[in-house]
Design a protein around this nucleic acid. Structure first.
Lengths: 187, 187
DNA sequence: CTAAACTTTCAATAATTTCTGAAAGTTCAG
DNA sequence: CTGAACTTTCAGAAATTATTGAAAGTTTAG
């Protein structure tokens, strides 16, 4: 399993970036390698291609499984497990968003909600609490949006994006729509 | 500068989370502290409140400046610099998105574009290149969307979100709209 | 069963990142 | 100027995170 120069630079780059997207370098590399490989790979092939230890591959695979990013397969007469990316690239992006939300945003929302429950004891606490509420609302709105985005068919999304001039136009259309309903007293 | 328990848990939590959002713990804490403080704080106050060294504060401030997240002010008769968060919470979120895009997505897009230029030499390279193109297109679409989202007035966005049932509805409206234009031959 | 062919675990170590604090740099009032 | 009041820098120390590889665990063919 020798990587071609192109695949190699892709894989290494993805490793570096991956570490900023919530998983470590090795995990990013493993995933990148699987994505560009036409056939499923086993752990030894991965270790060899990436020049990392067998144990490290095992850790990486485990992590990718917790992100639900890979699926297993088997080759007849071969006991080894073969790994390949699960779903499309869009699925992958959704998984990453979702997983990050669960790990990073949800706990924050919980904390902020809890902190809202107490009544502030003085002016400075009131100010702090108000700011925390703002952040809470922001995170909630973003969460809501991304949840809805994820429900969309990506192909449709792309098409819509290309057809119009994007979301601003979409919103102004909706805005008019909502206004005209409101004018008729349709709240 | 003693933090109240509420502020304290907020600040520490934000520190932990911050490290997942592209800056380190200290930077997250400093920013959180500034956000919930009614008055601008100077470096010593920050160091004392967070129990970190003066030098560390200086580093953190520098980092926050590179993210364009804080502004400076001065108090008459006092030589120290006082720091406060720049803009609204929404501005902050935009800055973070934008900065992360610049640091994490843009270089990837560049790399992927470059890798597209070569013609594949064999079937497996062709496959790899095709996957890379998919990722490129995905990242580009996401980039486009987020750029447009940032241009929107956040208040308007929130209102729209609350009025309707979200983006799916918005899109289906636009979809009808575009279709009817298309039916009239309006491309 | 048993042993071969795997995978996983985990303690030790390596690599990386963050933090400190002393020293150097800057600014400005007098 | 000068020195007091700051801020920044940066080398080394501390803390955190990632990696290895040997040992333990698991699965299955025979």
């Amino acid at each position: 399993m020798k990587m071609s120069p192109k695949v190699e630079s892709f894989v290494y780059h993805f490793g570096e970036m991956g570490s900023k997207w919530g998983f470590n370098r090795t995990v990013g590399q493993i995933y990148a390698l699987l994505v560009v490989s036409h056939q499923p790979l086993n752990a030894n092939q991965i270790a060899e291609a990436l020049n990392i230890s067998r144990g490290n591959v095992s850790m990486g695979i485990k992590e990718l499984q917790s992100w639900q990013l890979i699926s297993l397969s088997h080759i007849p007469k071969d006991r080894k497990e073969y790994y390949s990316p699960k779903g499309t690239i869009w699925d992958m992006a959704n998984r990453v968003f979702e997983e990050r939300r669960k790990r990073e945003v949800d706990p924050t929302l919980t904390l902020l909600r809890d902190l809202q429950l107490d009544t502030p004891t003085d002016e400075s606490e009131a100010y702090a609490q108000d700011k925390m509420r703002e952040i809470h609302d922001l995170l909630e709105t973003i969460t809501q949006w991304s949840a809805e985005l994820q429900r969309l068919d990506p192909a449709k999304l792309t098409t819509l994006m290309k057809l119009g001039s994007g979301i601003s136009k979409v919103l102004s259309i909706k805005n008019q729509f909502v206004k005209s309903k409101a004018d008729k007293g349709d709240k």
